[in-house]
């Protein structure tokens, strides 16, 4: 039996999770919520993490009913993410590893999402749609790497939804995109799909440009605009996922990342899957949204296959692609 602890703090969520082999012992998270109309910035986010990290760590240990002495391996997010928040969690992880003389493992955030999704949903080799505030990728495994078949060529889908929500000054709690309401009239928006890649920035500028006109003339309500945005961007995501599935001949899909807990997205994906006899695997907000457990899960796999990360390499980086990681733990 191996106990692993994972520290995650690449964006505005601070999370610590503990697992014993494949069993989750605890999963604690604290989110930095900004006022309506504002996004989170690196410095303030790092301050938030510094303020809460010990509290969150203690709560995770209490929930798991263990102490740090019982932990066998420390895992933390190496990247990608915002620099300042990343260094806070890396610093804590490194300190704990030194204090208790434990091996440490540096984990790619995206790989964390994928491995956690595979574990929780119980799927062996799915096509993965990874959608969050900072990432939009369609991933499939081949030859020791998670290969990115499609991705956004500009901003991430969650970023697009959040920025639109901020334009309307919707509340950021729990997340701006979450508060996008449902209307019924569809506005025609740009629909940009290039092969398996997507682009969202054009949609956002189109909406920014026409927003006041649409609302002033009462042609559309705010709800209609939210509805149209969601219908359009999700349709793009499902389309490219389906294209990737047809291309690699896969019949399983896994949705991970914060936007992945959106029920309309899951519903649309499910319809697509039914139409081509495929199976959808999805998780709920406990696991979709950034958390510590996902880092522990991916870190433990890495640790079991090739041991800890050498001390001098336990740094963090803002840019770290999913396909940079050599996946030694899969066939």
């Amino acid at each position: 039996m191996v106990i692993a602890i994972g520290f995650e703090g690449s964006a505005n969520k601070l999370g610590v999770g503990i697992i014993r082999d494949q069993h989750i012992l605890s999963n604690v998270r604290h989110t930095y919520v900004t006022p309506p109309g504002e996004g989170f910035l690196p410095r303030e986010t790092a301050q938030h993490h510094r303020k809460y990290v010990l509290e969150v760590l203690q709560e995770a240990l209490d929930d798991a009913k263990i102490s740090l002495k019982d932990v066998d391996v420390i895992c933390y997010t190496k990247g990608p993410g915002m620099g300042a928040p990343l260094t806070v969690t890396a610093l804590v992880a490194r300190t704990v590893a030194q204090l208790y003389n434990k091996p440490i493992v540096a984990v790619n955030h995206c790989i964390g999402h994928i491995e956690m999704g595979r574990l929780i949903a119980g799927t062996e080799n799915p096509t993965v749609l990874y959608v969050s505030g900072g990432n939009t990728q369609i991933i499939a495994y081949s030859q020791q790497r998670y290969r990115i078949f499609g991705e956004t060529i500009d901003i991430a889908v969650g970023n697009c939804l959040d920025r639109f929500a901020r334009l309307l000054k919707l509340s950021n709690n729990p997340s701006p995109g979450y508060n996008i309401e449902q209307g019924e009239k569809l506005v025609l928006l740009p629909y940009v799909v290039k092969g398996m890649d997507v682009s969202f920035s054009g949609i956002l500028s189109h909406m920014e440009e026409h927003l006041s006109k649409w609302l002033d003339t009462k042609a559309f309500t705010i709800e209609d605009l939210c509805f149209s945005l969601q219908e359009t961007v999700f349709a793009m995501l499902i389309e490219v996922t389906e294209r990737a599935m047809a291309h690699v001949g896969s019949n399983e899909v896994l949705i991970v990342g914060g936007v992945g807990c959106n029920e309309r997205l899951q519903q649309m994906m499910n319809i697509m899957c039914e139409e081509r006899n495929a199976t959808l695997y999805a998780t709920d907000e406990r696991f979709c949204i950034d958390n510590g457990v996902m880092i522990a899960v991916a870190g433990l796999l890495q640790y079991k296959s090739k041991g800890g990360t050498p001390w001098t390499q336990t740094t963090c980086v803002q840019r770290y692609r999913t396909d940079d990681v050599y996946v030694s733990w899969r066939k």
Binding site: Q143, R145, R147, I148, F149, K194, G195, M196, H247
Partner: peptide
């Protein structure tokens, strides 16, 4: 189905980029 008649350099470059990525991924050997 996704074809367009367009003469911009950007579109041609993206077309090539899409091909490169799909070759790298589907035929990594």
């Amino acid at each position: 189905g996704l074809a367009r008649m367009d003469s911009t350099l950007e579109d041609k470059a993206v077309d090539l980029y899409v091909l490169e990525r799909s070759l790298l991924n589907a035929h990594c050997e």
